[in-house]
Structures are given as structure tokens and as C-alpha cells.
Design a protein around this nucleic acid. Sequence first.
DNA 1: GTGAGCAACATAGTTAACCTAGTTGGCTCG
DNA 2: CGAGCCAACTAGGTTAACTATGTTGCTCAC
Lengths: 119, 119
Amino acid sequence: MVRHTGQPAYLQIADDLRAQIRGGSLAPGTPLPSTAKLAEQYDASLSVVKLAVGVLRTEGLVIGQQGKGVFVRDAEEPPAGGDELAELRATVEDLSRRLAKVEEQLATSTTRRSGRSSR
Amino acid sequence: MVRHTGQPAYLQIADDLRAQIRGGSLAPGTPLPSTAKLAEQYDASLSVVKLAVGVLRTEGLVIGQQGKGVFVRDAEEPPAGGDELAELRATVEDLSRRLAKVEEQLATSTTRRSGRSSR
DNA sequence: GTGAGCAACATAGTTAACCTAGTTGGCTCG
DNA sequence: CGAGCCAACTAGGTTAACTATGTTGCTCAC
């Protein structure tokens, strides 16, 4: 897969593509590699690549055109800070998750139930 | 499915949920119906509901918690100042601070099972 | 040479199945 | 009574298959 950073594969791929876009490796107007190519490149299934592209599409970073490809958006004007906002939100969500986890660990260090055996 | 407005089902569902959130039918902090319930409610497959929720998650409108549910995030509405960015940055800073603190607590008391019975 | 048609490839959407993992509450057994 | 186990929920991730639809380039007949 990609790496086991705790992040799901489709988010890792989305992150990587996002970084390439912001970094300039993928200039506005240029098409991303095709779904199949990306799947091979990241050694992932088509499904996770589609999910990753879907995330970027939702974020408005890219625009998919049926039959042609997925193109990096011009990013002329960030609509209400759309993409940076999305990034910040993702960060917030991640932080919240981690925080809730450690806080729970701290709070329940004595409670200790939930014995879930094997499985 | 939902309706054939040209929009794909998962976007229609996402739109509807988004409208309910913004409209107040789904107040911040309240959980969305479970995936299964939503699927039944919209007469859609589990997959499209999961996609719809995924969109809202990407947008940061909701936060999913495994085992519990998907909860409406606090106050998506931008304050009158309009500087939602600054607010988010502040939130990120705050979360980072708290997280660092708690992580430090955890690290410095690894063998410690300090009593703190919550729940 | 030109146009029609077709094949190949692209994204997009939908569905279904399986697995992981966290939460909760109830039941059993010591 | 209480601790532990477990079953039934929950969301999340992954994969695969199928369909629809749009684009492009090639071929072939005329």
C-alpha cells in the first residue's frame, strides 16, 4: 500500500496528490495520471484511487471531466478560502481524533473494561 | 433512490443533510441517523449513504466517531466578521496545545495508572 | 480524401461484500 | 454483587464488479 501512518490509503494518496498540486509538480490545467496509472503507481486498488480523487474533487482542487481526465483546477481565486479551509478542517478533525483518544486514555486508566478478547 | 435531478444520489443525500444541518434540523452535537437508517430513509444503498457522509466529512461539516455515530460539528456558520479562517487557526492552535499537554502527561506517567474514574 | 462507425480508454456512479474497530449494554458465572 | 465476556450496534476502509457516458483516434468503406 502506501504507508502505515495510521492514515487510510485513500487519504494518503489524496494528500500526496494535494502536495504535488500545491508544490507545482502538477500545474493547473494539467491532467492527473489516469485512475489506472495512479493505482499502479501507488500500488493501490482502483477503488482507493477513485476515493482519493473524489476527495480532491470535493475539495475543489481538481475537476474531473468524463472521458478526458482529471485536471488540476486553476486555483485563481480560492472561493472563500475553500481549499485552505478544507485543509485546516482536515487538520482539525485529525487533531480532534487524536486528542479525544489520549484524553480518553488518561481518563479511563482505571476503568479498564471492554475486554474484547480475540478477533 | 432519491430523485433524478441529474445529480448523483450521493450528492443529493449530502445536499439534503447539509441543508438540515444549516437549517437547524440537525443541531450541532447531535448525531445523524445511523448509516443503515439513512439508507432506509432515502431508500438508497449503504454505499451511497457512506459516500454522502464521506463528502460531509471531507467538508468538515460532520465528524464521525467509530462505534458511536456521526455528529454535527459545532458552528459551521462563519461569524459576522467573516474570518472563519482565523477562527479555525485558533482552534488548531488550541487543539495542538492541549494535545501536546496530554501527550506529555501520558509520556511522563507511563507506568502510572492514576485514578480518575470517569464514566 | 473524407466521413461514418467503432474500439479503446477515460471518469463517474452504484452496488455489494467483507473486514476492522470502537461503543454499549446485557448476561453469565464465580 | 461484581468482573468479565459477549452480542449487537456503530462508523470506517478496502475491494471488486458492473453500468453509464464522454472523448479520441483509428480504420475502413465509399
